[in-house]
């Protein structure tokens, strides 16, 4: 139990995918302009990360590794994610229209979101030896970290829009500088986790 909590916290706070490991930067910069879209995108990412891990982990362990087909990992994983996103889109459109209205627009962005492919590959990395439960917790924690970064950052961006920086720093450079400061502040979390588990 303690290990699982540790995995979630370190994935969400210490090894934050966006702010520490530079995964999913495109969507972090592209969709974080408003709280509503930032959180909507993050929920979609969490859902897909969890489902994708639940599907790719057994595929890797029982299909690819068992048959010495490890070299097909990247191809299989990206296809699985692409197919999953398509199916998810069809399914929630049909059965959960309110959810579709909330998350539908983000789903096409998720196939090419490197955080999703990244977490599925990291979960089956040979030097990690995660169990299925640990892999799911890592996926959840990573998604949670993404949500946290997106939500905080959408708040920051609300303020930078009114700022008046030098001309050449307007737009993306200013956004990146804000991201740097946010990333710096996440260093503090490692102290929290250190004290909880150290």
């Amino acid at each position: 139990m303690k290990t699982l909590v540790f995995i979630i916290l370190s994935a969400a706070l210490v090894n934050n995918y966006v702010l520490r490991q530079f995964l999913g930067i495109c969507s972090f910069l592209g969709v974080s302009r408003e709280l509503k879209s930032a959180s909507g995108m993050s929920y979609a990412v969490i859902v897909v990360m969890l489902i994708a891990t639940a599907v790719t982990y057994p595929i890797q362990k029982y299909l690819l590794d068992a048959n010495n087909l490890g070299f097909l990992q990247t191809v299989v994983f990206i296809l699985v994610i692409a197919a999953l996103v398509q199916l998810l889109e069809i399914a929630i459109k049909k059965y959960m229209p309110p959810l579709y209205r909330a998350l539908g627009v983000y789903l096409p962005l998720i196939t090419t979101n490197c955080a999703v492919l990244g977490v599925t590959i990291a979960n089956v990395a040979p030097d990690r030896a995660y169990t299925f439960a640990e892999a799911m917790m890592n996926a959840f924690g990573s998604g949670l970290g993404y949500l946290l970064a997106m939500v905080i950052f959408s708040g920051v961006r609300g303020h930078t829009e009114d700022a008046n920086p030098p001309k050449s720093f307007r737009g993306l450079p200013l956004t990146l500088i804000s991201a740097a400061i946010l990333s710096l502040s996440f260093f503090g979390f490692s102290g929290v986790v250190e004290n909880l588990f150290g």
Partner: peptide, 21 residues
């Protein structure tokens, strides 16, 4: 001079991204 919306035009996903926001 960049506006807040710039920067995604070269990306294949730009349309989905912008429509999402």
């Amino acid at each position: 001079e960049m506006s807040d919306d710039d920067g995604c035009a070269g990306c294949a996903m730009a349309d989905s991204c912008t429509s999402a926001s």
